[in-house]
């Protein structure tokens, strides 16, 4: 039995677990610099997670098993998604488990349970967060699916690894639909990972928070898991975009020496993605909740236009 793919798979899990906090730190660092503040350093998220893991859990009296189960599920689904997206190599045993639609489903199940956990305690903020999160998701998720569908139509597969390989083999022609899909994808990444202008990850200002409102009551290791999963999610969306739109550098298959190069390219791409993210976040202000409809609606429209133009021009 060929053990190589399983080694790569394991490596990819470790890389994701390790790199996600560093990426979050990188974004925070760039943001500090762009706002003229001193940054806490690249590794501050590690210290935060370690601190939270060593603390006791403070749990509301009313919390049910859903509240305690959710952090593990959110963490699990994020990690599993990391085994599906080709980060270092396309030669992954888990890649056949799930295609991009399942990937969206994995993020959806994490969101579903986070929203339930927000309602579990029975506070006003929790319910508010859940309601807003599900509203935003109900517009962002279809846009995300449509953007991905456009890419998978162009590459004749919904499997990410396969899509990368098709792009490598040079069968993909540059189409206008891809530009629409990319634009929509960027808007959706901002919405799905809760960045400005959709949500502000740094605020706990009561009336503007969305994602934070759902996890207000978490503490200790539960909070650590959720935070870590959130960082992984941010990183995964960047890597998903990289795999779908700019896969160059990802090792095709069987080549052990391509892995360090793939790692290097991944760092490079993440670094650039961080810069773009910070530029967007510094350039824009957070939108009012009901302005988001226009933002997400245009993402949905762009993605649908992408698919339409594919169908019509083909």
């Amino acid at each position: 039995m060929n053990l190589y793919p399983f080694v790569i798979e394991l490596l990819q899990f470790l890389v994701l677990l390790g790199i996600a906090p560093v990426f979050a730190g990188w974004v925070k660092m760039l943001k500090c610099w762009s706002q003229g503040r001193t940054s806490p350093g690249l590794f501050q998220p590690y210290r935060d997670i370690m601190k939270l893991f060593s603390k006791d859990v403070v749990l509301a009296e009313n919390a049910s098993w859903i509240f305690r189960f959710t952090p593990y599920l959110v963490f699990g689904s994020a990690l599993l998604a990391g085994g599906i997206i080709p980060i270092l190599s396309t030669d992954l045993p888990l890649a056949a488990t799930a295609d991009v639609i399942v990937l969206v489903g994995l993020f959806a199940i994490a969101r579903f349970f986070t929203a339930l956990a927000g309602m579990d305690i029975g506070t006003a903020f929790g319910g508010m967060g859940s309601s807003r999160e599900m509203t935003i998701a109900s517009l962002a998720e279809p846009a995300m699916l449509m953007a991905i569908f456009t890419m998978s139509l162009a590459n004749k597969s919904t499997s990410l690894s396969q899509m990368v390989q098709v792009i490598y083999s040079g069968q993909t022609v540059l189409r206008p639909s891809i530009a629409f899909a990319l634009l929509a994808f960027i808007l959706i990444v901002l919405a799905e990972t809760g960045r400005i202008p959709v949500d502000n990850p740094a605020t706990h200002l009561e009336l503007t928070m969305i994602h934070e409102a759902m996890i207000l009551e978490y503490s200790g290791r539960h909070l650590a898991l959720i935070e870590w999963a959130g960082m992984m999610k941010l990183c995964l969306f960047m890597l998903l975009g990289a795999a779908a739109f700019a896969p160059w550098g990802i090792a095709a298959s069987g080549d052990l020496y391509a892995i360090p190069a793939a790692f290097f390219f991944m760092i490079l791409k993440l670094g650039a993605a961080g810069v773009v993210l910070v530029l967007i976040e510094t350039g824009l202000a957070k939108m009012r909740l009901f302005r988001l409809t226009e933002f997400l609606g245009s993402a949905f429209l762009l993605a649908t236009l992408g698919m339409l133009s594919y169908f019509i021009l083909e």
């Binding site: 006791d56 749990l59 509301a60 009296e61 009551e217």
Partner: peptide, 14 residues
């Protein structure tokens, strides 16, 4: 072994 403390709601200190 980490402890779990059951406490009343926090809700941002409301």
């Amino acid at each position: 072994p980490g402890k779990i403390h059951r406490v009343p709601l926090w809700d941002c200190g409301f």
